[in-house]
Amino acid sequence: MLMAVPTIVIVAVAVFTLIRLIPGDPAALMLGDLAEPQQIAALRSTLGLDQSIPMQFMIWVGHLFNGDFGKSIVTGEPVLHLVLSRFFISAQIVVLAVFIASIIAVPAGVIAAWKQNSLTDLALVGTATVLLSIPTFWLGLLLLLFFGLKLGWVPVLGYVSVTTDWKAGLIYMALPVATLFIHEMGVIIRMARASTLEVLRLDYITHARAKGLSEQAVLWRHAFKNAFGPTWTMIGLILGNLLGGIAVIETVFSIPGLGRLLVDSIFQRDYPVIQGCLLLVAVAYVLVNLVVDLLYPLFDPRVVAE
């Protein structure tokens, strides 16, 4: 649990180093090929690029602590504000999709394990494997093609935030959420099934049966809670991973989320924004897993939160 702090420190160093490794001088790039050397030098000094690398790092970290993540080179917007507002858009899609997927997929996985090798099990596992093999960006396109173009139920382009108009916002969110939901269903069903199978082999399950409990009680009261621990950790990892991997979905549905922001910034060499995105996602990932770990003892009292 205490690993979270050093991890975030190393993450910060890594992000900083990564950006310095990018070839080319951002000041020269920003000013274009007609710029005078003096102009470039002036911009370098405003951006702090003329300092030594360790100095730049210290200044950067100092600013981070003051909530100053710099300004976008392209638009001049404060990075923290920009990144956080985009993060909110991505996060609502990811959290909603994973939440719905978990509610359906976890019980489905448990049932598949309980009926191991039955037709139900084969159908569930088969479906899950197919679902998880479909790339989200392709699935998104297919859904868009069908529901957007064929049926005309949802708009094909554009985006409205739920905060401005919640009805319209929900409609715009429907397809991206559905895409992620379908994909993650596959992942979670398989995980829940595997961890339930592990538990069902154990002695206390046989003992619960030997006590005279019904199969339902054995499954939900004894097996489920113990099997949920590993699945819970997995859901945490999925959440974190999706935050980073959502760029493709956002591209398909033209949503101005964090992923799209990162990709655009890479194209535009907007260093401060790239840094901000990477840092925010990594920190979010660490925090999500921290919360997951802290809640883990609820499912398994053997693991004591330190």
Binding site: D203, Y204, H207, A208, K225, N226, F299, P301
Partner: peptide, 14 residues
Amino acid sequence: VVFQEPMTSLNPSM
């Protein structure tokens, strides 16, 4: 019924 393995015969989360 009493089983052999006391370490695994009781449900760890109850």
